[in-house]
Design a protein around this nucleic acid. Structure first.
Length: 257
DNA sequence: ATGGCTAGCCCGGCTAGA
């Protein structure tokens, strides 16, 4: 039986609700990982999502961040936040179990600029993610970690590698931090299935970024190696970035056999 | 060299995103 998992940074679920409902209708996904809800738990549009036939587990926050898992089947073992010793109000991690498969929705901090306080918060957050993954799941467990990683994994994942190399989203330490989590036994689904293509998942609202295809591939679905052979297709829903009031990110879709 | 949109917050100019 085919399973379809989507990750999408909506940049405000309130502003994107009609597009989100249309997305559910268009792709009929089994699980959707959302990031940047920009709403509190009280304001989460649960009724509209349930009316579309989906369960929702979510972790909101006032004004910023926020992550959710939408699914046909209600998840078990929902985890919100890392539950580590760090007192952190930023809502950036949620996971749930759907039968055998565990799915996490992550919103990795942006980092602002290399060397800034936010950059070090990002590196520290990525280390907390690695630690959480290591402690939570064996490397045999079927797991998908999907979301806005705010890291372009390789130079070819940017529209202008010479301009981006070493900058925020492309620095050595960010890429090394991503690789440290992947070294626990994960592969980049899109790159695994599309070896030589250059495709992006985010385009700046400014400078006609989308029209000129000045983008980055920063929204990823990391799949555990134990399910590598189940990965069938992974593609970007570029059309979702078109039209009136799009998010600046496009959804990424993974099909599992 | 800079900022160029968009969203939230609460109502005008900030912060934040990437």
């Amino acid at each position: 039986m085919m399973q379809k998992i989507i990750t999408w940074n909506v940049n405000s679920i309130g502003q994107r609700l009609s597009r989100l409902i249309a997305l559910l209708d268009r792709w009929a996904p089994d699980v959707v990982c959302l990031q940047e809800l920009k709403c509190t738990n009280e304001n989460f549009p649960l009724a509209a999502i349930e009316a579309a036939g989906y369960h929702a587990a979510f972790l909101g926050q006032k004004a910023f961040n926020g992550v959710a898992l939408l699914s046909r089947v209600e998840p078990t073992e929902v985890v919100k936040g890392f539950g580590d010793s760090v007192d952190d109000p930023q809502a950036r991690f949620i996971s749930g179990r759907f039968g055998e498969l565990t799915v996490a929705s992550v919103y990795v901090p942006n980092g602002q600029a290399v060397g800034s306080d936010k950059y070090y918060y990002k590196l520290n957050w990525l280390e907390r993610l690695r630690s959480h993954v290591s402690a939570s799941w064996s490397n045999q467990a079927p797991v998908i970690i999907a979301g806005d990683f705010n890291i372009a994994p390789a130079p070819r994942d940017t529209h202008d590698p010479s301009a981006w190399e070493g900058q925020i989203l492309c620095s050595k330490r960010e890429r090394a931090a991503l690789e440290a989590t992947m070294d626990l036994g994960f592969i980049d689904s899109f790159r695994h299935l599309n070896h030589d293509t250059t495709e992006f998942t985010w385009w700046d609202y400014r400078m006609l970024g989308f029209q000129k295809n000045l983008g980055l591939r920063i929204d990823l679905l990391l799949a555990s190696r134990s399910i590598q052979t189940r990965l069938q297709r992974c593609y970007v829903d570029r059309d979702e970035r078109k039209g009136d009031k799009p998010s600046d990110h496009a959804p990424v879709i993974l099909e599992l056999s």
